[in-house]
């Protein structure tokens, strides 16, 4: 009889423990589902900009740009130049990601020639080197290796950049190629997991000017991850409801 009671009690205790764990688990689960729903731009019921913070952020802008090589770098620099008063205003910090040295050199000469002319001053430029997600003409097996290496190094960079952007006005500007997807994925994953802040990543993707009727592969992925998805030709914004078109920005 006693033994029977003992068994029943311990059974009761363990089931209470279990329900407590399940309860906590459910809370955490709900919390993250809520963050997930809130963080994924394409799940939002309202448009991206309606998810604003209740307060207006002050202070110098922090921007992260990824220079994707060749034509991507060229277009990104044109956008920076055309929107310099907004993007490179007084005391801002520019975090520059690149995967080829030519892009870094281009940015350095761009910074020298364009920024000095403007009245505003840049507080700092910081460089981050990223591996290429995929070499042109790489086989699938080669690609898997480079993707894994890029995943790891970009995770470390993204954490550093996130810490710099944290609680300050910030923008992340991306325009391709593939490495952007890995970056965007890390930024979104940390936006969801990092419960210490409710900052949005503020990711802006600008599709290449060469894309008139179809999105690039990077564009198709970033369409779901970016907070603002911009195309440069109206044909594409008709096809993709989330895409905004402001004409040729480059």
């Amino acid at each position: 009889m006693d033994i029977g009671m003992g068994v029943n009690e311990s059974h009761l205790n363990s089931s209470m423990d279990a329900s407590a764990i399940v309860g906590i688990g459910l809370l955490v689960y709900t919390f993250y589902v809520f963050r997930l729903v809130r963080s994924l731009p394409w799940l939002r019921l309202h448009n991206a900009s309606s998810r604003s913070n209740s307060f207006t952020k002050n202070g110098p802008l922090q921007i992260f740009v990824f220079l994707g090589s060749g034509g991507h770098t060229g277009e990104m620099l044109r956008i920076l130049e055309n929107y310099a008063p907004t993007l490179m205003n007084n005391g801002c910090t520019i975090h520059v990601g690149y995967s080829d040295n030519a892009s870094k050199l281009k940015f350095e000469s761009f910074a020298k020639s364009s920024i000095d002319k403007k009245s505003g001053s840049i507080h700092a430029v910081k460089y981050y080197e990223f591996g290429k997600a995929r070499e042109v003409n790489a086989s699938i097996f080669e690609s898997i290796g480079t993707v894994i290496a890029t995943l790891y190094t970009s995770l470390l960079h993204v954490l550093t950049i996130r810490a710099s952007l944290r609680s300050k006005p910030h923008l992340i500007l991306l325009n391709g190629p593939g490495t952007c997807c890995i970056l965007a994925l890390w930024f979104k994953i940390w936006e969801i997991l990092d419960f210490t802040t409710s900052d949005s990543s503020n990711m802006v993707y600008v599709e290449s000017l060469a894309r008139i009727n179809t999105l690039s592969l990077t564009g198709k992925i970033l369409y779901y991850l970016s907070d603002m998805f911009v195309v440069q030709w109206p044909q594409l914004s008709e096809k993709y409801p989330r895409a905004k078109s402001f004409g040729v920005l480059t």
Binding site: S49, S52, F55, L171, M228, F246
Partner: peptide, 11 residues
């Protein structure tokens, strides 16, 4: 749109 996103100033 860039300003609104960066500074959270929309609406």
């Amino acid at each position: 749109a860039l300003e609104d996103l960066a500074y959270g100033t929309s609406n």
